[in-house]
Design a binder for these strands. Structure first.
Lengths: 224, 224, 224, 224
DNA sequence: TATGAATGAGCATTCATTCAT
DNA sequence: TATGAATGAATGCTCATTCAT
């Protein structure tokens, strides 16, 4: 009995491992080529599995894609939650968040951009795939929900951090959700510059820059 | 003679009109589906022309795409230049800029997002298409350049406006290019929120919000 | 171990078989329609594979085409070489050659004609396709060479046979290369009559006829 | 009245002129690219007419093609008939024929090859076009007949020349039609060498060579 | 009449997905 | 289970032919 359990255990473990391995490969490929230009062949090659094998682990290209994105989000969510719990000032939390997200974007490079691919594009990928298989029985309407929940939780944590800052007197009495949204926009826009390349910022540098502007704006003090 | 001229005129006019019409259709489709997922059939359908006709006006899908983007940029560049020349304070110029760009993004909705599509995807599209047409005599190597120049000019104008503000004592002595970049990032990130939808801001509202944060940040005054 | 080997063996065998099968189908279709008019759909239909499957075996229509031609040439070359080595008189070798090539042309019917398709068309096909694939890493610049080499070797063997005949006193002291060329032209022209159909010759008949004229011409003896 | 006649006359003349002009252009293009690769655009460009105009003069690409070929044949037929009537020996007539046809092939280069495009290919072009327009009323089933008649007449004239030679004692008592066929094959094959290029023969040279072999073959005299 | 513009039908090629072993 | 092979459905692009002026 124990033997069997162990075997099953090991089997499950290997399955999970393989799934992660494929996901990693997929992330690399999607990051390099975007959704449409990436082919299952590319991913299979990168993952060193046969293309058919990918389909043992994931039902479709679309599922792989969403899994990749979900993975990303989960990582960020966990880290964000952790930072929130630290015993430091809100400003320091904000700084850490900026630093972490910058690092993250830096590592994942293009992946981040794919994340912010237009809603309608996302919807499109979804729709197309659903249409294609309209006759098939198994669909995955639940995926986008998990997706959204993750984003919302991250957003909420940021809200809470800002709220802390306001309550502690560090920040102005701004609308918390607005501020969180601005925070997100700033980071998103900063790291998600399209084909335009200004100078390349180092992570430390960009953290300072972003923090500075997020805190103080460009207005000369005492003039407001 | 006059008759002929008029006819030619009208003909030319209709050609231009058709080109624009196709471009509009293309914009709609690209905005909805992104580059790869958009098909020439889609665009033809939207433009109510036959697919073959599109090819009378544009040499390839890629050319249509770049024309669409170029169009967008030119419009923004012109407006930005105009605002810069107005006889108003730098802050007011910034406000107008935010308002205009917000309006623009609002109108063009998804188009803006396509612009910020993966750099690597862009590169990919470019490379692939350039290679494909390597043998043909008439290429469009200038397109990406015009593209870049447009972006840079917009960026430079923003820099100048900020510089004005600093020189007039309105703004802090920040690094001009950093500030311009932050400005761009803020707007970009704000309007280019991916699948996440917080509340919908009205343009007036979002202009205020963005201006407020860009000017003052979230830090409580006197504490820095 | 042996089992696996056998399986691999069988697999390889089937692959080769399929390749040949496709080639046969392609030959039929090309022979019927020529290069440009033949479509991959035609070939797929004839081969009873899906069109996509053809692309598992050959990279492009062009590759299929060249493979078909190469195949033809190789067969002829081998047979020609074999005849040359026989212990018979040069005249008998010439007769055998005529017989073999006539048989071959008869079997392959139109294929032979495709071979003599427009040089410019060939060049065109080549150029177009080479340009198209310029950017890809794996090209087949060797194909046309193998092609040429085959032709040249066949030509050379014929030269040698004629030379033997001259040295043995069977033939007049003609220029060997001229004679070989005439020999080729005669066969080529005979079997490659366009839309004009005189009477249908049987192979035995045409062999006699061709041999007779190649040896004696039409001039009355003693008059030259 | 006279005025009108003259005008009509001139008009007709211009129409004929245009037709010929288009035909010339078409010949050039077909010779360069073959049937399938030649486009109506190419021909229009070469003829400096608009593509639509071509369709005023010819109903289809196919019709242009056949007209081009027919033209070719007619020219050859006339010349062949003329040579036959000359007051010279049969051998001299044969020599002149070879010279003329060689010159002709030389001028028209690839056109000749197109002529001998496989019957089945011809049939195919025909079939396809007929099928395409099955619903349309006007077809051209007569064209191939004119075509054939021309070829046959040329063949017959050659037969007659050879017959003369036999009757005058110049030539051996060969089967006239066989000899004529061999004659055609020799010329056809000689000028219609595919991608293989031996040495380039000058016209004078090749005339001698062909005549020599056609008359004497390669057999050493007295041995037969 | 001549022609610029418009288009339907195709075609080579690709790719997500399924099948058979 | 893993995978090589097979394929249906696209997709960008072309071209002979028709239309409207």
């Amino acid at each position: 009995m124990k033997k069997k359990d162990l075997r099953l255990e090991r089997k499950k473990h290997r399955l999970e491992e393989n799934k992660m391995f494929i996901l990693q490969a997929a992330e690399t490929v999607f990051a390099q080529k975007g959704y449409s230009l990436a082919t299952m062949d590319d991913i299979a090659l990168e993952a060193q599995f046969s293309k058919a094998t990918l389909y043992r682990y994931y039902k479709s290209k679309r599922e792989v894609f969403f899994e990749v994105i979900l993975n990303s989000f989960e990582e960020v969510r966990k880290k964000t939650a952790k930072i929130k719990l630290k015993k430091i000032t809100a400003e320091e939390k904000i700084r850490e968040l900026i630093f972490y997200i910058s690092t993250y974007y830096h590592k994942k490079k293009n992946m981040a951009r794919i994340l912010y691919m237009e809603r309608s594009v996302m919807r499109n990928i979804l729709n197309i795939d659903i249409k294609k298989h309209l006759s098939h029985s198994t669909q995955h309407p639940q995926i986008p929900n998990e997706f959204k929940e993750n984003m919302e939780e991250i957003f909420n944590i940021i809200c809470e951090i800002i709220k802390e800052g306001i309550e502690s007197g560090e920040f102005r009495k701004v609308d918390v959700r607005d501020a969180a949204f601005i925070f997100g926009a700033l980071l998103r826009g900063f790291h998600f510059r399209g084909p335009l390349r200004g100078r390349e910022y180092r992570i430390k540098e960009s953290t300072d820059l972003l923090l500075n502007f997020f805190l103080y704006g460009i207005k000369k003090k005492g003039k407001a």
